[in-house]
């Protein structure tokens, strides 16, 4: 905030400053003894410690690009985690992807692309002294961010409602009055008559394994152990015999009520939703941060800070917004478009 106030008043002082990216701006003011005019700077937008506007602009751009590189590496770790999970559990990804709404994801992709376009136009309008166009485009970009988050909110809440989440809660039947972990354990525990499975006070994290393993490869379990009605499943209903499982090419058919009732659900399916929330959640946080930057830029644009001589903040803020779009361009096919 101090920096902003400084920006606002600096032109009246007639000495150099920069546009929000310059941590040393205050130092320039501290050197009263130097006499700023002695350096031959007359451009109010040129900071004291830069030789030229070109050098100052290039420094700002290099700085923001180095930051964007750290963002790529930041998301890169999660992309690597995604890739390894998908290599290990390809069936989980092709199964669980069908629970994501491709239309909503596609609309969100378009929303981000259009907001990237308005952001690029905003930079152009700042460069060409079109203040009205600049403010309009910044507001439109901000609205794009809002729209993206609203759609994401509906996606998230729908999945929370169906217990399509990370961790043990994924194996709790949704819409249940006893939708807590204790309920899941109790439902898992009852052994069908004749079944040899005995559960000795299973810890919560064992529930998924117990519930899913027999259904995966029931042929490994002796028939006697299956009991007359099959192995108990997480929701208490008998697991279908392996022969009754749908053929691999039938996975596109409509899913039954909940994911727990879907006999074709592979084990460890919750891992898909763990990495889904981790990556889209981190991306969503970046969208929120972008909204803050856009609001700040809009405020400064309304105040009249930006012009063809001073647009670096719009440019660098725009670059941040574009990298948010760029990351979503990869997230969208990796999560929503798994065949």
């Amino acid at each position: 905030m101090t920096q902003i106030a400084h920006d606002h008043h600096a032109p009246a002082h007639g000495h150099g400053h920069s546009h929000g990216h310059d941590a040393h701006g205050h130092d320039a003011h501290g050197h009263g003894a130097h006499g700023h005019d002695g350096h031959g700077h007359h451009d109010p937008h040129l900071a004291h410690h830069f030789d030229s506007l070109a050098q100052q602009f290039d420094s700002a751009k290099l700085g923001i690009w180095l930051f964007l590189a750290t963002e790529v590496l930041f998301f890169g770790g999660l992309f690597v985690a995604y890739a390894i999970l998908r290599m290990r559990f390809p069936e989980v990804f092709s199964f669980a992807s069908h629970y994501l709404d491709t239309i909503m994801g596609g609309i969100n992709t378009c929303v981000l692309i259009i907001s990237s376009l308005t952001m690029a136009l905003a930079v152009r309008y700042a460069q060409t002294d079109n203040r009205k166009g600049l403010i309009t485009c910044l507001v439109l970009t901000f609205l794009g961010a809002v729209g993206f988050l609203v759609i994401k909110y509906f996606e998230y809440t729908h999945k929370f409602h169906d217990n399509l989440v990370w961790g043990p809660s994924f194996y709790v039947p949704p819409h249940s009055a006893e939708g807590d972990l204790e309920g899941a354990v109790l439902k898992t525990a009852p052994a069908p008559p004749g079944a040899a499975i005995t559960v000795v006070n299973p810890a919560p994290w064992q529930v998924p394994d117990l519930a899913r393993k027999p259904a995966v490869d029931a042929s490994a379990v002796k028939a006697a152990a299956m009991g007359p009605s099959g192995v108990a499943r997480a929701n208490g209903t008998p697991a279908p015999a392996p022969a009754a499982e749908p053929a691999p090419d039938a996975k596109d058919q409509a899913h039954p009520g909940t994911h727990l009732e879907d006999a074709s659900m592979p084990p460890n399916t919750h891992l898909f939703f763990a990495i889904y929330y981790a990556m889209t959640g981190l991306h969503g946080i970046h969208v929120v941060a972008g909204m803050g930057i856009l609001a700040w830029l809009t405020w400064r644009a309304v105040r009249g800070d930006f012009s063809s001589k001073n647009f670096t903040a719009v440019d660098t803020g725009g670059l941040y917004w574009h990298i948010v779009d760029l990351i979503w361009i990869f997230l969208f096919p990796l999560f929503y478009l798994i065949h």
Binding site: L53, A54, I113, R124, Q127, T128, D129, K309
Partner: peptide, 21 residues
């Protein structure tokens, strides 16, 4: 008007890129 630094991208490039995306 055009700035002393940076490059002003023509509107047709920006809109074209958006349409392509």
């Amino acid at each position: 008007a055009h700035p002393e630094v940076g490059h002003v991208v023509p509107v047709k490039y920006l809109v074209g890129a958006g349409a392509a995306l």
